[in-house]
Every structure is written in structure tokens, then in C-alpha cells.
């Protein structure tokens, strides 16, 4: 029985997971409504909300599970990557909580947590696999030899996919968070009426770049506004289609190149319907098996952190009291 704590961005979350598989409780306190007024996540505001919420959220995870604090075997917490001030709230609390209970501490990489969300719901995943992690903070392609061993084969050079969604949504006046806003607008529009380039970097096959696409979308939108056209739904549909195509084609070609029979989607942007559908169609064409987490486990949550920590618990791979938080990714 492992308690997970997650505060890397704008969700204060705690969850209890049994044997790395069974989600006993999963509490998420979202700050979206607070950050909406700023048009995006403000790190200092997020950290301030985390310190106010943390005790409530952790306690609620125990109440929902009908467990006492002493009933858990370990405390798992995200220590990288993420907003440093936000990470430090969860990490400092987790260290002291584990110490006070006399239980081991397990620091978890947020990205590995996202990937692990798949294993909480699907029991029959075969390896090797290619995993695409897409969210507001990251766009990474990983080769997974098995559930415990993975290697980053490509990342974004500039904006993360979710970040590109946020910026373009803001530019188009669709609001925050951008992913759901663009998806909603795109459902009423049609791709192909506006034409955006598909930027496939040629030199390094599995690296991504979205800032060019973002700029192209903004320029095209300004130009069409000057012509008196302003179909925001068609623009959203084309932007989403272009971004999805890049993500899908890179992922599929990596799976073929690495001879992986399985494709995993993870992270907040994995909740995007167009991405799920396009990836499913392409995976089926190529004879690949595709898995993605349910919507609730795609976005940031602590169940994925507690789940991922099970491996470390099993291997007695505990973290010392002086472990620190890191804003960036060192290794996965």
C-alpha cells in the first residue's frame, strides 16, 4: 500500500495504490480556475495553493480509502521534472510525513509516472514498446525495453505539445487550458481549409519542434483576419490536425524502426480525442497494439506516482532525506 503525492504543476494530488495496480483512492485538487485569470499556470501562485492544499489532499486520500496513516508501507512523491517551487512543497511534505510515520520515501520521476498510468489500467502490455509522453510540460518519445527500463529517443526542441496548444488557444481567444479549448472548437470546424505546414525535422528523426507550427498558425490567422475571414473553428481544426499528425507519424515510425509491437500514449495531451483516434487508426494499419490511460489518469494525478513507486518499493530502492527536487529531466 503506497501513498503517492504529486505537486509538479497546478494540481495538488494524493492517492493510495495497492500492489502497484489497484487504485484505492485518487484525490486531485485542480487549480485550473485560479490560473485561468492569468491565462496560464503562474508558478508562484501554484506553489502558494499547494502549501494551502497539501494537508487536506493527503488526508482526503486516506479518508477516501478508509485507511489510517500508519496503514501505508511507503510514501512516494514526484521530485522531477516540474515547477521547482511547486515540486518542493510536495517533496518537503512527503519527506517529513514519511519520517514522522517511520516509513520509507520513494522519489518518482513525473514522466515515468505518466507512462505508468497505462499499467494501472492495462494488465497485458507487451514489450518492447514505444511511448509518447505529451503534456503541457513535455513531449518525449521513449523506447521501453520492459516496464522498468526505458530510454528517451526524442524530445521537443522548444515548446511542449500542450504548451503549443495553450499559446495558440490564447492567441485565438479560446481560453485556458488550451488543449480542451482547441479540441472543442475543432469539433465544429474542418481541417484543410486553412493550410499549415507539417514540420518534420529531417536531421534528428525523433525530435519535435512546435514553435514553427505555432508561429505559422499565428501568422496565418493574422493574415486571414486582414482578409476579413475569421473562422476560428476551422483554424483550431487545422492546427490540431497538424500537431496530431506530427506526433502520430513520429511515434509510428519509431515503433517500426525499433521493432516495437506496442505503442503507449501518456500525459495530459493523451486525453485529446483527435490524437487518440488518429493514433489508433495508424497503429491498426501497421499492426501495432495501442494503449492509453482513461481520461482521469491522463492528466496529472498521484495514482500514477504511487503505482510507479511500487517497483522501487519491491527492489528496496528508497530515497534519502536529503534528496532534492529538479525542474528538468536528467534521465528516465
Amino acid at each position: 500500500m503506497i501513498l503517492g503525492i504529486e505537486t509538479s504543476c497546478d494540481e495538488t494530488a494524493a492517492a493510495i495504490v495497492k500492489n502497484g495496480r489497484e487504485v484505492i483512492s485518487n484525490v486531485i485538487n485542480s487549480q485550473i480556475s485560479i490560473h485561468q485569470q492569468f491565462g496560464g499556470v503562474v508558478p508562484e501562485v501554484a506553489s502558494r495553493k499547494h502549501i494551502e492544499n497539501i494537508a487536506w489532499v493527503v488526508d482526503a486520500a486516506f479518508k477516501d480509502a478508509a485507511l489510517n496513516y500508519q496503514d501505508i508501507d511507503a510514501v512516494a512523491v514526484t521530485n522531477m521534472p516540474g515547477l521547482i517551487g511547486a515540486l518542493l512543497v510536495g517533496l518537503s511534505f512527503a519527506k517529513a510525513f514519511a519520517y514522522g510515520l517511520g516509513k520509507p520515501l520513494i522519489a518518482v520521476n513525473h514522466l515515468e509516472g505518466h507512462i505508468y498510468a497505462n499499467f494501472l489500467e492495462h494488465k497485458d502490455i507487451e514489450f518492447p514498446a514505444i511511448c509518447l509522453v505529451v503534456s503541457g510540460g513535455h513531449t518525449s518519445l521513449l523506447y521501453m525495453k520492459n516496464a522498468g527500463e526505458s530510454e528517451v529517443i526524442g524530445e521537443t526542441r522548444d515548446d511542449a505539445a500542450g504548451e503549443a496548444f495553450d499559446k495558440v488557444a490564447r492567441f485565438l481567444g479560446l481560453g485556458y487550458p488550451g488543449g480542451p479549448a482547441i479540441q472543442k472548437a475543432a469539433q465544429m470546424g474542418q481541417p484543410g481549409i486553412y493550410k499549415l505546414p507539417r514540420v518534420f525535422l529531417d536531421r534528428n528523426e525523433y525530435e519535435f519542434s512546435f514553435s514553427g507550427l505555432k508561429t505559422a498558425a499565428m501568422n496565418l490567422w493574422m493574415k486571414s483576419l486582414r482578409r476579413g475571414e475569421n473562422n476560428v473553428e476551422n483554424m483550431a481544426a487545422e492546427f490540431q490536425a497538424a500537431l496530431v499528425e506530427i506526433l502520430v507519424e513520429k511515434t509510428i515510425s519509431a515503433a517500426l524502426h525499433y521493432k516495437a509491437g506496442t505503442v503507449l500514449l501518456a500525459g495530459g495531451v493523451a486525453a485529446n480525442q483527435a490524437l487518440r483516434e488518429t493514433m489508433a487508426r495508424r497503429a491498426q494499419n501497421e499492426g501495432l497494439k495501442l494503449y492509453y490511460p482513461s481520461l482521469k489518469l491522463c492528466t496529472d494525478n498521484a495514482a500514477m506516482i504511487a503505482g510507479r513507486a511500487y517497483y522501487d518499493y519491491y527492489n528496496r530502492n528508497f530515497s534519502p532525506l536529503n534528496i532534492n527536487a529538479h525542474p528538468n529531466l536528467f534521465s528516465v
Binding site: 521547482i84 512543497v89 519527506k95 517529513a96 510525513f97 519520517y99 514522522g100
Partner: peptide
């Protein structure tokens, strides 16, 4: 320091709840 305050208070809260 905003971050320093939160590190101390988060640690104090964690100990307070656990103990």
C-alpha cells in the same frame, strides 16, 4: 523567501500530521 517558507512549513505540516 517564498520558497524557503514553504519548505519549512511543508516539513512542519508533514511531521504534524504523521505524529
Amino acid at each position: 523567501s517564498f520558497t524557503g517558507l514553504r519548505i519549512g512549513l511543508a516539513a512542519a505540516k508533514g511531521l504534524s500530521l504523521a505524529a
